[in-house]
Design a protein around this nucleic acid. Structure first.
Lengths: 145, 145
DNA sequence: TACAATTATATTGTACACAATTTAATTTTA
DNA sequence: TAAAATTAAATTGTGTACAATATAATTGTA
């Protein structure tokens, strides 16, 4: 009943539900993020900035698993929308400082409702969510070893 | 110690490790997929075709959670590489039939080594992998309700 | 201290990903 | 059965992703 190609069946691959789940969840964010004029990637960049107020492209890249090829144009868009400022560090001109503006800070007040709206969307139990959360971070840990 | 903005901390968001994990795992596939001249998305499309031999864009989209805007150019590339054929259905000319070629069938022999190589890369225990797998499919199920 | 190596960001090119729209074929229905 | 609705792909436009390369600043070292 089983052959050497079973491993290639899509239902035997862990990567696929991961990929699909990630995309489908992000899709559910769209209507909420549209209201505050952010894409998903812009949103997670803002999450870091709402915590840190000020950071660098390098630091953002490390935290978000993104490189400058993705971040440079994205941050220019956030700057054009007035949510952040970009300027080179005086100490070390290689570093680009990314800083929240007042408008960016104010956006936090609207964004604060999003996690609640989303958890209504994904009706996973508290325990299951916690379990999923720790498994995912465990994989991320294993990958960065 | 906690305030109303805690929910916006990136470590309190389930979506983020999902997004990051998905991307990081896909990155690990790249060296293996490069050897057989496939991208990750092309690979999962081939997974379906290796199972079904023949399908439609619609069916592929349903199985892979992708739309024609992604699939049309992707399938044209797979056709250009000689792995598949694309032709309209005689029964219903709206449907585009996607069919594995001999070359596409032969590629399966090389691809069969990939899942093993990948599981070496991600050293998650059998139980944990199973747990993660079922949680992810549970979320996908909840999302499609 | 010149110069080689490293580091941080930006740029270029390719490939998704998806919303919105268009086109063409088929089905439903008035 | 002709027009309306639906369906399946394709197209268009915007926004990531990321590898590879380039550029400029800083650091390490012979």
């Amino acid at each position: 009943m089983s052959d050497k190609f079973d491993c290639l069946k899509i239902e035997n691959q862990l990567c696929f539900p991961l990929y699909a789940c990630s995309k489908e969840i992000i899709k559910r964010y769209k209507p909420f993020l549209d209201e505050i004029d952010l894409t998903y990637t812009q949103y997670i960049a803002m999450l870091i900035l709402w915590e840190e107020k000020k950071t660098t492209v390098k630091e953002l890249g490390t935290r978000l698993y993104l490189d400058s090829g993705t971040l440079t144009p994205l941050l220019k868009k956030l700057e054009a929308k007035g949510f952040i400022e970009r300027k080179r560090s005086d100490k070390d001109e290689r570093n680009l400082i990314v800083k929240l503006t007042n408008k960016g800070e104010e956006l936090k007040e609207q964004a604060v409702q999003i996690p609640d709206k989303m958890s209504c969307c994904v009706k996973l139990g508290k325990d299951e969510a916690r379990q999923l959360y720790s498994l995912l971070y465990r994989v991320l840990g294993l990958l960065s070893e």
